[in-house]
Protein backbone atom coordinates (compact mmCIF):
# COMPACT_ATOMS: atom_id res chain seq x y z
CA UNK A 1 0.00 0.00 0.00
CA UNK A 2 1.12 3.52 -0.74
CA UNK A 3 1.67 6.03 2.07
CA UNK A 4 2.47 9.70 2.25
CA UNK A 5 4.66 10.57 5.23
CA UNK A 6 5.53 14.03 6.42
CA UNK A 7 8.59 14.75 8.54
CA UNK A 8 9.92 17.70 10.43
CA UNK A 9 13.69 17.45 10.57
CA UNK A 10 16.52 19.64 11.79
CA UNK A 11 17.61 21.87 8.92
CA UNK A 12 21.18 20.64 9.17
CA UNK A 13 23.95 19.35 7.03
CA UNK A 14 23.73 15.60 6.43
CA UNK A 15 20.13 15.00 7.53
CA UNK A 16 18.86 14.12 4.07
CA UNK A 17 21.54 11.47 3.68
CA UNK A 18 20.62 9.95 7.05
CA UNK A 19 17.04 9.59 5.86
CA UNK A 20 17.77 8.35 2.36
CA UNK A 21 20.44 6.04 3.81
CA UNK A 22 17.91 4.59 6.24
CA UNK A 23 15.55 3.77 3.37
CA UNK A 24 18.22 2.18 1.19
CA UNK A 25 19.99 0.38 4.06
CA UNK A 26 16.82 -1.28 5.27
CA UNK A 27 15.39 -2.00 1.85
CA UNK A 28 12.48 0.45 2.15
CA UNK A 29 11.09 2.02 -0.97
CA UNK A 30 11.03 5.75 -1.80
CA UNK A 31 8.66 6.76 -4.60
CA UNK A 32 9.27 10.44 -4.12
CA UNK A 33 10.89 12.74 -1.65
CA UNK A 34 10.44 16.49 -1.32
CA UNK A 35 12.35 18.65 1.09
CA UNK A 36 12.67 22.35 1.79
CA UNK A 37 13.00 24.81 4.65
CA UNK A 38 9.85 25.36 6.72
CA UNK A 39 8.47 28.53 8.26
CA UNK A 40 11.01 28.06 11.05
CA UNK A 41 14.39 28.22 9.28
CA UNK A 42 15.93 25.72 11.72
CA UNK A 43 13.48 23.09 10.54
CA UNK A 44 12.90 21.44 7.16
CA UNK A 45 9.72 19.74 6.07
CA UNK A 46 10.05 16.54 4.15
CA UNK A 47 7.33 14.66 2.30
CA UNK A 48 8.06 11.07 1.41
CA UNK A 49 5.82 8.80 -0.61
CA UNK A 50 6.58 5.15 0.09
CA UNK A 51 5.00 1.75 -0.35
CA UNK A 52 4.88 -1.28 1.91
CA UNK A 53 2.59 -3.47 3.96
CA UNK A 54 1.56 -2.56 7.50
CA UNK A 55 4.58 -4.20 9.11
CA UNK A 56 7.01 -2.41 6.81
CA UNK A 57 5.27 0.90 7.29
CA UNK A 58 5.39 0.47 11.06
CA UNK A 59 9.14 -0.09 10.80
CA UNK A 60 9.58 2.91 8.50
CA UNK A 61 7.79 5.21 10.93
CA UNK A 62 9.64 3.83 13.94
CA UNK A 63 13.03 3.92 12.27
CA UNK A 64 12.47 7.49 11.10
CA UNK A 65 11.46 8.49 14.62
CA UNK A 66 14.61 6.89 15.94
CA UNK A 67 16.89 9.16 13.91
CA UNK A 68 18.22 11.82 16.23
CA UNK A 69 17.63 14.67 13.75
CA UNK A 70 14.01 13.79 13.07
CA UNK A 71 11.68 15.95 15.14
CA UNK A 72 8.30 14.63 14.08
CA UNK A 73 6.85 11.96 11.83
CA UNK A 74 3.27 11.80 10.55
CA UNK A 75 1.72 9.15 8.35
CA UNK A 76 -1.10 10.78 6.42
CA UNK A 77 -2.94 7.54 5.78
CA UNK A 78 -4.76 7.94 9.08
CA UNK A 79 -5.44 11.65 8.60
CA UNK A 80 -7.58 13.67 6.21
CA UNK A 81 -5.09 15.59 4.12
CA UNK A 82 -4.48 17.51 0.91
CA UNK A 83 -1.61 16.76 -1.39
CA UNK A 84 -0.35 18.55 -4.49
CA UNK A 85 2.35 18.00 -6.98
CA UNK A 86 3.77 20.10 -9.80
CA UNK A 87 4.86 18.88 -13.18
CA UNK A 88 6.76 20.67 -15.96
CA UNK A 89 6.17 19.25 -19.42
CA UNK A 90 7.96 20.29 -22.58
CA UNK A 91 5.77 19.34 -25.52
CA UNK A 92 6.08 19.61 -29.29
CA UNK A 93 4.13 22.67 -30.36
CA UNK A 94 3.61 22.63 -34.10
CA UNK A 95 1.44 25.14 -35.88
CA UNK A 96 -1.53 22.81 -35.99
CA UNK A 97 -1.30 21.35 -32.48
CA UNK A 98 -0.93 24.65 -30.64
CA UNK A 99 -4.64 25.41 -30.23
CA UNK A 100 -5.25 21.93 -28.85
CA UNK A 101 -2.43 22.31 -26.34
CA UNK A 102 -3.67 25.73 -25.25
CA UNK A 103 -7.17 24.36 -24.75
CA UNK A 104 -5.89 21.50 -22.64
CA UNK A 105 -3.73 23.80 -20.50
CA UNK A 106 -6.75 25.98 -19.90
CA UNK A 107 -8.99 23.06 -18.95
CA UNK A 108 -6.39 21.79 -16.49
CA UNK A 109 -5.74 25.31 -15.22
CA UNK A 110 -2.08 25.08 -16.09
CA UNK A 111 0.30 27.71 -17.41
CA UNK A 112 2.66 27.94 -20.31
CA UNK A 113 5.84 29.23 -18.81
CA UNK A 114 8.21 29.01 -21.77
CA UNK A 115 7.74 29.12 -25.49
CA UNK A 116 10.04 28.36 -28.37
CA UNK A 117 9.43 28.00 -32.08
CA UNK A 118 8.83 24.26 -31.68
CA UNK A 119 7.84 23.72 -28.07
CA UNK A 120 5.80 24.84 -25.12
CA UNK A 121 6.82 24.27 -21.52
CA UNK A 122 3.72 23.74 -19.43
CA UNK A 123 3.36 23.91 -15.67
CA UNK A 124 0.51 22.00 -14.05
CA UNK A 125 -0.22 21.50 -10.37
CA UNK A 126 -2.68 19.15 -8.82
CA UNK A 127 -3.17 15.80 -7.23
CA UNK A 128 -1.88 12.64 -8.75
CA UNK A 129 -5.01 11.76 -10.68
CA UNK A 130 -5.15 15.16 -12.37
CA UNK A 131 -1.50 15.08 -13.40
CA UNK A 132 -1.90 11.57 -14.70
CA UNK A 133 -4.92 12.56 -16.77
CA UNK A 134 -3.13 15.59 -18.20
CA UNK A 135 -0.01 13.64 -19.11
CA UNK A 136 -1.96 10.91 -20.86
CA UNK A 137 -3.90 13.49 -22.90
CA UNK A 138 -0.84 15.47 -23.91
CA UNK A 139 1.28 12.40 -24.65
CA UNK A 140 0.02 11.81 -28.22
CA UNK A 141 1.16 15.34 -29.12
CA UNK A 142 4.75 14.43 -28.28
CA UNK A 143 6.32 15.00 -24.87
CA UNK A 144 9.98 16.00 -25.18
CA UNK A 145 10.72 16.12 -21.47
CA UNK A 146 8.86 15.79 -18.19
CA UNK A 147 9.87 16.72 -14.65
CA UNK A 148 7.77 16.15 -11.52
CA UNK A 149 8.32 17.51 -8.04
CA UNK A 150 6.74 14.63 -6.17
CA UNK A 151 3.84 15.48 -3.89
CA UNK A 152 3.85 17.71 -0.83
CA UNK A 153 1.11 17.23 1.72
CA UNK A 154 -0.68 18.97 4.57
CA UNK A 155 -3.42 17.93 6.97
CA UNK A 156 -6.83 19.48 6.41
CA UNK A 157 -8.38 21.92 8.86
CA UNK A 158 -6.75 23.07 12.06
CA UNK A 159 -4.39 20.14 12.36
CA UNK A 160 -0.72 21.07 12.03
CA UNK A 161 2.73 19.58 12.23
CA UNK A 162 3.99 21.12 15.44
CA UNK A 163 7.34 20.78 17.09
CA UNK A 164 6.74 19.42 20.51
CA UNK A 165 7.83 15.87 20.74
CA UNK A 166 8.01 12.81 18.63
CA UNK A 167 4.69 11.25 17.67
CA UNK A 168 3.25 8.16 19.19
CA UNK A 169 3.25 5.46 16.63
CA UNK A 170 0.62 3.17 18.04
CA UNK A 171 -1.41 4.08 21.07
CA UNK A 172 0.05 2.64 24.21
CA UNK A 173 3.39 1.64 22.83
CA UNK A 174 4.99 4.89 23.70
CA UNK A 175 4.01 7.55 26.15
CA UNK A 176 6.63 9.94 24.80
Amino acid sequence: MRHTISLLVENEFGVLSRISGLFSGRGFNIESLCVAESLDPTVSTMTIVTTGNDAILEQILKQLNKLINVIKVVDFSEIDYVSREMVLVKVNAEEKTRPEILRMVEIFRGKIIDVSSRSYTIMITGDEAKLKAFISLIKPLGIKELVRTGPIAMARGERMLKIKEKTDIKGGESNG
Binding site: I68, I71, E165, E173, N175
Partner: peptide, 14 residues
Protein backbone atom coordinates in the same frame (compact mmCIF):
# COMPACT_ATOMS: atom_id res chain seq x y z
CA UNK B 1 17.95 17.88 21.98
CA UNK B 2 14.36 18.64 21.04
CA UNK B 3 14.12 15.70 18.68
CA UNK B 4 15.48 13.07 21.07
CA UNK B 5 13.50 12.06 24.14
CA UNK B 6 13.71 8.35 24.93
CA UNK B 7 10.84 6.76 26.83
CA UNK B 8 12.01 5.36 30.14
CA UNK B 9 8.85 4.60 32.07
CA UNK B 10 6.55 1.90 30.79
CA UNK B 11 2.94 2.78 30.04
CA UNK B 12 0.97 1.82 33.18
CA UNK B 13 -2.02 0.58 31.17
CA UNK B 14 0.16 -1.71 29.09
Amino acid sequence: IRSYQPTYVGHPGQ
